[in-house]
Amino acid sequence: MRAYYFDNLEGDQRLPHDSGMDVSDEVLKSIGVLHWHIPVDAEGKYEQDISAIAKERNYKNHDVVAISKEGLGDEFETKIKSFYHEHMHEDEEIRYLLEGTGFFDVREHSSESWIRCHMGAGDLLVLPAGIYHRFTLDMGNRVRTMRLFKDEPKWIAHNRGDQTDANPFRLEYLKSIEVQ
């Protein structure tokens, strides 16, 4: 995974939007974002590694989601745009890419800048509950990803706004990164 500041220039959300300014692991950790690279292998060793992380983080369920033009048909562009709305979740978001490539953008609270995380097969990303983020494919237009859940699979996005800014999970997140 490569992380860098988003350039904020006009253009297709699936383009790199690379400012040329890389973001260090320390900056990611300071906003609660964790990541690992666990190669997807034919023997299935990656499944053991993912299971170990899931157990450590108390995750009990998972599913696999594929996003592509072929799979979504006429709804593809609408779905991609909906994933790109700035939002947060009340649970950690853990994604492991099995195939394809895409971008997770996370909001750096102190600067309000977007940090773009370009992920490929074998990349695992953990976003803390309450962090503002968004997702899009890159120009490859396809991804297959494993989503991990503490309980039953669910995905509820809370789009950014005054109400979400006051959400208890958002406030707890800000406290965890020591924002007053």
Rank of each mutant, 00 (worst) to 15 (best):
F104H: 04
S111P: 03
D105H: 03
R107G: 03
S113K: 15
E77R: 09
R107H: 07
Y96E: 06
F104S: 03
K81R: 14
Y96I: 02
H109I: 12
H85M: 14
H89N: 08
S82K: 14
I80T: 10
H89A: 04
V106E: 07
E99C: 01
S110I: 09
G102Q: 02
E99I: 00
E92D: 15
H109F: 15
S110D: 10
H89I: 13
E108M: 08
H89D: 09
Y96K: 01
G102D: 00
W114A: 04
H85E: 13
G100F: 00
E99Y: 01
W114R: 08
I80W: 04
E108G: 03
S110M: 13
D91C: 07
E86Q: 11
Y84T: 02
G102I: 00
F83N: 12
S82H: 12
S82P: 08
W114N: 09
E112W: 05
E93A: 13
D105V: 02
E77Q: 06
S111V: 02
F104R: 00
E108H: 14
E92Q: 14
H109G: 06
F103C: 01
H85A: 10
F103I: 02
E99D: 02
F104A: 00
S111Q: 06
K79H: 12
H85V: 05
T78V: 15
K79L: 09
E93Y: 15
E90C: 11
V106N: 04
M88H: 07
K81S: 11
D105P: 06
E92I: 13
F83D: 07
D105M: 03
S110N: 11
E77D: 15
E108T: 04
E93I: 15
R95C: 14
H109P: 14
L97V: 04
M88P: 05
E112P: 07
E77Y: 09
E112D: 15
S82D: 10
E90W: 07
S82Q: 14
E77T: 09
T78F: 14
H109K: 06
K79Y: 13
L97Q: 03
E90Y: 10
L98N: 01
K79A: 11
Y96G: 09
H89S: 07
S110R: 15
E108Y: 09
W114K: 09
Y84I: 02
S82A: 07
F104L: 10
